[in-house]
Simulated scan of single mutants.
Amino acid sequence: MPDLPRITILGAGRVGGALAAQSPIPADLVTREAGWEALDGPAGAPVVVAVDNAGLDAALARVPAARRPDLVFVQNGVLEPWLFEHGLQDSTRALLYFAVPRRGAAIEPGGTSVLTGPHAEALATWMRAMDLPVEVVAREAFTAAMLEKLIWNSAFGLLCQRFDCSVGEVLERHDETLAALVHELLAVGRAALGVELAAAPLLQRLRAYSRAIPTYRGAVKDWRWRNGWFVAAAAEHAIATPTHLALLREAGVDMAPKT
Rank of each mutant, 00 (worst) to 15 (best):
M1V: 12
M1A: 09
L4G: 09
P5D: 10
P5L: 07
L10N: 09
G11S: 14
V15S: 13
G16M: 03
Q22W: 03
S23R: 03
I25G: 05
I25D: 12
L29T: 03
R32Y: 10
E33A: 11
W36F: 08
G41E: 13
A43Y: 10
V47K: 01
V48P: 04
V49Q: 01
V51M: 08
L56Y: 06
D57Y: 05
R62D: 12
R62K: 15
D70S: 06
F73V: 00
Q75R: 06
Q75G: 09
V78D: 05
E80D: 15
W82I: 08
W82M: 06
W82S: 14
H86F: 12
L88G: 03
L88K: 07
T92G: 02
A94S: 02
A94T: 04
Y97T: 04
A99S: 14
I107Y: 06
T112K: 01
V114H: 00
M127G: 07
R128L: 14
D131F: 04
V137D: 01
R139Y: 02
R139M: 07
F142R: 01
A145L: 07
K149F: 05
W152Y: 15
N153M: 10
F156Y: 14
G157I: 00
V170H: 11
L171I: 06
T177W: 06
L178H: 07
A180V: 05
E184H: 00
L185V: 04
A187W: 03
A187S: 06
R190P: 00
L193Y: 01
V195K: 04
A198K: 11
A199L: 09
A200H: 09
A200M: 08
P201A: 08
R205E: 13
S210P: 10
I213S: 12
P214D: 11
T215N: 13
G218E: 11
W223Y: 15
W225L: 15
R226S: 05
N227R: 09
V231F: 04
E236G: 09
E236Y: 01
I239Y: 02
P242H: 08
T243V: 10
H244D: 05
E250F: 06
A251K: 09
G252E: 10
T259W: 12
